[in-house]
């Protein structure tokens, strides 16, 4: 298994503020990663450093085995689609595609054109005059058609409606299965992308608080649903991370595998065991991290 990205003890501080605080992780080739976390958690800062558009304060970083800074061999294999991408005032959508063809060696013009049609982007329109959703679509087109061995999408669907978002997920999965590559999706809309992700890295307050395969994460908690009173009985003595009442019903997320005795007990009480949503788990883990962080500060 080869690591596309290796990060060791990476730190980035702005004066007293630690945007990235001793972060270490690896990203393996040809997998879809989720870089999850709240706004301001440090995701974008981290991705800027990974692509040599920003600088770390300290720590080691290797992308495709080398440091990416001013490294053409590395950079030409990276496509980083960021929410804050700027475009020259005079550029049309077509100009952006032409430039992409020059800078991304694996650019597929036909694929780009079919995506442009899918997302109904006007080729001749000035990028400055695109709506927020269209601008996001343009980023998605560039990111997918670049076929870069490392493609990073930072909050790629701002302003996109549900139809366009599901179009993005579908095209991404289709093309990924034909042309495997490493994809990192950074987002706070966790549930929507959870079915795409093979591995999840959760960042909170500049720290990595979770770095695991999606399947393993799902196994760490389960949801139980049924009549509120019965569910409450079941929950006694268990670690509950989320409660969602609906009329007389209650759905609760509980830490544990949800098999063996627990499953038996639940079935005996007429309750239903379901997989838990990734979002709830991430929210829960972020909360635990914050509590621990505060305790750490006191100690």
């Amino acid at each position: 298994m080869s690591a596309v990205i290796e990060v060791n003890h990476l730190r980035k501080s702005y004066g007293q503020v630690k945007a990235i605080d001793d972060v270490s992780f690896q990203i393996e080739a040809d997998k879809i990663y989720g870089m999850l976390g709240r706004n301001g958690a440090g995701k974008t800062t981290l991705m800027h450093i990974l692509t040599a558009q920003g600088f770390a304060t300290s720590g080691d970083l290797k992308v495709f085995g080398e440091h990416p800074y001013e490294n053409e061999k590395v950079l030409r294999n990276i496509c980083f689609i960021k929410e804050s991408q700027k475009y020259p005032d005079t550029f049309s959508v077509k100009n952006v595609l032409d430039v992409s063809a020059d800078f991304f060696p694996k650019w597929d013009r036909d694929f780009a054109n079919s995506l442009i049609a899918d997302f109904q982007l006007p080729l001749k329109r000035n990028v400055k005059k695109l709506s927020r959703g269209m601008l996001s679509s343009l980023g998605i087109v560039v990111g997918l058609a670049s076929r870069a061995p490392l493609t990073i999408f930072d909050e790629p669907y701002l302003g996109l409606d549900a139809v366009a978002r599901s179009l993005f997920y579908d095209r991404l999965l289709e093309d990924y299965s034909e042309h495997p590559r490493t994809i990192i999706l950074s987002t706070h809309l966790i549930d929507e992308v959870s079915r795409l992700l093979e591995h999840v890295i959760v960042i909170d307050s500049g720290k990595v608080i979770l770095d695991e395969e999606t399947d393993t994460i799902r196994g760490r908690a389960y949801a139980v649903a049924g009549a509120a009173s019965k569910v409450e009985d079941f929950l006694r003595g268990k670690q509950v991370i989320h409660r969602e009442p609906f009329g007389g019903l209650l759905t609760a997320a509980v830490i544990g595998a949800g098999d063996g005795r627990d499953r038996h007990e639940a079935e005996g009480m007429g309750l239903e065991i379901q997989p838990v949503s990734l979002q709830q788990l991430v929210v829960h883990l972020s909360k635990i991290n914050q509590v621990q962080g505060k305790e750490g500060e006191r100690a």
């Binding site: 490294n71 960021k82 991304f104």
Partner: peptide
């Protein structure tokens, strides 16, 4: 106009 755009499209500062 161009520098941020180019950097965002994986261009080296030198290039």
């Amino acid at each position: 106009q161009q520098f941020s755009f180019a950097l965002g499209f994986s261009v080296r500062r030198k290039d």
